[in-house]
């Protein structure tokens, strides 16, 4: 998952534009189709939340970097470096995003990093 240029999101080429809940419904339907097992959407939301959180952080990071004149690919790579590198706690922000209680702290750390970069 990552950011793309708005120009590449032409409505004519777009298949669907889903909210997170819409994605969970699609996942639920897909799992049901393959296995006949019905997974509650709130459990899918719980399992996939770290991915959505990371995508939102990446959007914020890259958007800000582009506003400052950085290249999209370079700033995406810089974000991935940051999110996967362990901090002083010994765990990476990516790992911390799996814990709902630590997500606000990851956002604060990222915004602090961007403000002082």
């Amino acid at each position: 998952m990552g950011l793309v240029e708005s120009a590449s999101l032409l409505p004519a080429k777009r298949i669907a534009c889903l909210s997170p809940y819409g994605i969970h419904l699609l996942q639920q339907r897909f799992i049901w189709y393959l296995t006949r097992f019905l997974v509650p959407t709130h459990r899918l939301a719980e399992a996939t939340a770290p991915v959505f959180e990371e995508a939102e952080l990446e959007e914020e990071w890259v958007t800000r970097a582009i506003q400052r004149g950085a290249e999209r690919d370079a700033s995406t790579a810089a974000f991935h470096d940051w999110v996967r590198s362990p901090d002083e706690s010994g765990t990476s922000p990516q790992e911390q995003l799996t814990d709902p209680q630590r997500r606000a702290g990851v956002r604060r750390a990222m915004r602090h990093h961007l403000a002082h970069d």
Partner: peptide
């Protein structure tokens, strides 16, 4: 409403699974 037989766990690869 939220009763479920499914739980989220940390898979061996470190990522959440069901």
């Amino acid at each position: 409403r939220y009763r479920s037989d499914v739980e989220v766990f940390t898979a061996p690869d470190g990522l959440p699974g069901l």
